[in-house]
């Protein structure tokens, strides 16, 4: 089976600081792949390279079969509509209402508007994250957890095949984190999207992952399911499970 995201020998440096040092991964259809690593290990850099918010220095990086480096802008934008990105800080457009936040990507990609029309699509997506009543609110009127849900709704509205989660539970209290994790599982089923999740929340990793990669020193340090890795005797791996 062809992977949705294929990365081989990926290198990325910022000046003298090498962040990714020959990293590799394959994300397959219907899979929830969690990448765990300590702060500053290059997890977010990896996600940004996948959608070309950052240019990788070298290596193979294919999304939906297309090599991302060197891709022309039009094709890249088309691929980006198939790859949802949930930012760590939600990144909602603060000058727009919730409705406008969701309409924004849709109006710029009319080919993604189905027969229901924009209004119904917005409402249905908000319903699927349980926040239809916030449709006319501004982001500043929402709590952190609600903002994260709206950001997820904005990601889902283009019905992506892959969703990239950058620390989806960071900065949230344990109860809200749990709600977000449950929501991620729910939308995963509903939208049948594959997910690449960057986190250091091991509860999140335990509940959501089919497979995990431990990123250490910019390389794949260990790989396996949550239960396999939790039994590992490797001190680096164990440090994440303590």
């Amino acid at each position: 089976m062809e992977p949705l995201i294929e990365i081989k020998d990926l290198y990325k440096s910022f000046g003298e600081n090498r962040v990714l040092n020959g990293f590799k991964l394959g994300l397959y259809e219907g899979e929830n792949l969690v990448i765990v690593g300590k702060s500053g290990s290059g997890k977010s850099v990896l996600l940004k390279c996948i959608v070309r918010l950052l240019e990788a220095d070298s290596g193979t990086l294919k999304v939906l079969g297309q090599p991302i480096p060197g891709l022309d802008q039009y094709t890249l934008d088309q691929i980006r509509t198939e790859v949802g990105f949930l930012f760590q800080g939600s990144a909602l457009y603060d000058s727009m209402t919730v409705r406008e936040n969701l309409e924004f990507p849709l109006r710029r990609h009319p080919e993604k508007i189905n027969s229901q029309g924009v209004e119904t699509m917005v409402l249905n997506t908000l319903r699927s994250v349980g926040l239809a009543h916030t449709i006319d609110l501004m982001p500043e009127e929402l709590s952190g957890g609600m903002q994260r849900r709206i950001a997820l709704a904005r990601t889902l509205i283009l019905q992506p095949r892959i969703i990239l989660y950058d620390e989806p539970t960071s900065g949230l209290d344990p109860i809200t984190s749990k709600e977000i994790i449950e929501l991620m599982l729910k939308v995963q089923k509903e939208y049948q999207a594959s997910a690449l999740i960057i986190t250091h929340d091991m509860d999140c990793a335990r509940v959501i992952s089919n497979r995990m990669i431990i990123l250490f020193d910019g390389q794949n340090h260990a790989e396996g399911t949550y239960s396999e890795l939790s039994r590992s005797s490797d001190p680096v791996v164990q440090a994440f499970f303590k």
Partner: peptide, 19 residues
């Protein structure tokens, strides 16, 4: 306005939505 959009990753969010 643009500076705050930049640091809160709103500009990046537009970019990754293919806009």
């Amino acid at each position: 306005e643009l500076g705050s959009m930049k640091v809160t990753e709103q500009i990046a969010a537009m970019e990754v939505s293919g806009t």
